[in-house]
Design a protein around this nucleic acid. Structure first.
Length: 229
DNA sequence: AGCTTGTCCTGACTGC
DNA sequence: TGCAGTCAGGACAAGC
């Protein structure tokens, strides 16, 4: 399976699972796209960081801009995700009935990893990255290093994930530098973040300065008082 | 099997 | 001003 299979294919639609875009193609193929950290698509964009161009049959070009080159693109047979392990093991979609509080709690009970890296694995729920993991854990009063999240706290975290993602989507996402809407407009959620990127500022609940640690190789900000272990 | 760590890459920012 | 060091929204491969 290679990208050369893309030439001449008809794009039947564009869907999404977690942070993966999935475009069904004719010939029972799928185009899988991941933006990585800094990827974006824009029509007819000319830019030094444009890494790929998809020529469409209406004459337009869809440019893939990807500064850090962490983005990925692949053509696979429909549903054949063996070469894309995170997609293969991807958890249920948040903000849908598939994301069930009891099943979520059962998964958290089964793992021995700290809760935050486990969330970032995409296995308990799809689509939660570093920003929203910090925000949801703060909202649910859960320490990011906790390896024992019981049922009640799992249910609180389930609700917090839906709340944090739902609010961010309403504000069209969180922009620091690269992330943008198709028209280039920034998302407005960055101004509403409570934990992520706000180490040293007072916790809105208890006024304790938020603390930053490294956990699973990722920057992690939390309140040492109301997210106590 | 699943957790943990290091790596991919460029750019922006900090501190000397 | 210049340069080295650090950090950044993600996923994967290779350790154990």
């Amino acid at each position: 399976m290679g990208l050369e299979l893309l030439a001449g294919r008809r794009v039947l639609g564009v869907g999404r699972r977690g942070k993966f875009m999935i475009a069904p193609l004719d010939e029972d193929l799928e185009l899988i796209l991941h933006l990585g950290m800094t990827g974006s698509f824009r029509f007819d964009l000319e830019d030094p960081h444009v890494r790929a161009k998809l020529s469409l049959d209406d004459g337009r070009t869809l440019s893939f801009r990807d500064v850090r080159r962490f983005g990925r693109m692949a053509v696979v047979e429909s549903g054949d995700y063996g070469g894309i392990p995170t997609l293969k093991m991807l958890g249920p979609e948040p903000l849908t009935d598939d994301f069930d509080p009891d099943r979520f709690a059962a998964k958290l009970k089964r793992t021995s990893a700290p809760i935050k890296p486990y969330l970032l694995s995409q296995r308990p729920v799809a689509g939660v990255g570093n920003i929203y993991a910090d925000e949801a854990l703060w909202l649910a009063w859960i320490n990011p290093t906790s390896r024992a999240v019981g049922k009640a706290r799992a249910h609180a975290l389930h609700a917090a994930i839906n709340e944090v993602l739902g609010a961010a989507i309403e504000r069209e996402g969180t922009t620091f530098s690269d992330y943008a809407m198709l028209d280039g407009e920034s998302g407005r959620n960055a101004d509403f973040l409570i934990a992520y990127g706000r180490a040293g500022t007072p916790c809105p609940r208890c006024r304790t300065p938020l603390r930053k640690i490294t956990l699973g190789g990722r920057g992690t900000t939390y309140c040492p008082k109301c997210q106590r272990r």
